[in-house]
């Protein structure tokens, strides 16, 4: 019980979202596929330029020409949302991948080598004790906003949760007979770690990874929304929403259209994550 000092990751994994077999994960996958595809090929298909400033067509309502209307500079909001999907999903996937790789590496070492464990986990506890949005905002402030620092700002608060997960699995595995057998056969340590232990972390990592993507997409949007994310001219969902704030009262669509895509993406990634948890790891699945 007392190990719960500074936890912060549990809630995203707590409890099932929806009853099993509701066909929901199929729907979620479909919606994600559509969003992903539009991010991938949308910019090739649509003619509108998300950066094209058109003072004549400022703040237009949605119409056949501008599906989601135009913003204060006359830019096509639909184009900005589609291009924004590219940025937001890219940042989400890249930072989740980075967190997974970094966290797995450190988790493997911390779980296997007793000497490292104490120090590494104290540092991880310290990082996790800083509320992640606050840490991310401060990091970007210090280093200046660009793609690299935004990724860093998302990865640094997130990767300790991966470390803790992997370390926990490894700690449990060290007692297993087949690991002891491998050790007694003088198997090189790297081989024990990579061949015998790493595969066991895969299922929980895939599950954790999906929640990491969802939280990274959200964090990027929050950073941009607060004005400390990617440079404002880059169309990301957070930036589009941030620019819409000024004219929200007369053109709520400036916030609601990108907001809808953002919410749909996060919602469906979370749903998939839950489905993955049930499918891959019965031990992780919380009781119904």
């Amino acid at each position: 019980m007392s190990a719960l000092t500074t936890t912060g990751s549990a809630p995203r994994r707590a409890g099932r979202l929806l009853p099993r077999g509701s066909g929901l994960s199929a729907c979620a996958a479909l919606v994600l596929l559509v969003i992903g595809l539009s991010a991938l090929v949308g910019p090739l298909v649509i003619a509108a330029d998300p950066l094209h400033i058109d003072p004549v067509n400022r703040l237009k309502l949605p119409s056949a020409a501008f599906w989601f209307g135009t913003d204060a500079m006359g830019r096509d909001v639909f184009a900005r949302v589609v291009y924004g999907a590219r940025t937001s999903l890219l940042v989400g996937l890249a930072s989740a991948a980075l967190s997974l790789v970094l966290g797995t590496l450190i988790g493997l070492l911390a779980g296997y080598f007793r000497l490292l464990d104490g120090i590494v986990m104290r540092v991880m506890d310290g990082i996790m004790a800083i509320p992640s949005i606050v840490l991310a905002v401060a990091l970007v402030a210090v280093t200046g906003a660009n793609l690299g620092t935004v990724l860093l700002a998302i990865v640094l608060p997130d990767f300790p949760r991966v470390v803790r997960l992997v370390r926990g699995v490894i700690l449990g595995l060290r007692q297993e007979a087949y690991v002891e057998a491998a050790v007694s056969l003088a198997t090189p340590t790297w081989r024990i770690l990579l061949r015998h232990m790493l595969p066991n972390t895969l299922a929980p990592l895939i599950v954790q990874g999906s929640f990491l993507v969802a939280s990274a997409v959200l964090t990027e949007a929050v950073l941009s929304f607060l004005g400390v994310g990617l440079p404002p001219e880059v169309p990301s969902w957070g930036n589009v929403i941030a620019e819409g704030r000024t004219y929200f009262q007369i053109r709520p669509g400036l916030i609601f259209f990108p907001g809808l895509f953002l919410a749909l993406t996060v919602l469906n990634i979370n749903l998939i994550g839950d489905a993955l948890r049930d499918a891959l790891d019965p031990k992780l699945a919380t009781r119904r």
């Binding site: 979202l17 929050v222 929403i241 929200f248 907001g259 809808l260 919410a263 996060v266």
Partner: peptide
């Protein structure tokens, strides 16, 4: 199912979208 659906929605909708939705 309804209660849980509301919970998922609440969890996935970004705070600022909720805020602006309520304001609207």
């Amino acid at each position: 199912r309804l209660v849980m659906a509301v919970a998922v929605l609440g969890f996935s909708t970004p705070v600022f979208v909720v805020g602006y939705g309520l304001i609207y």
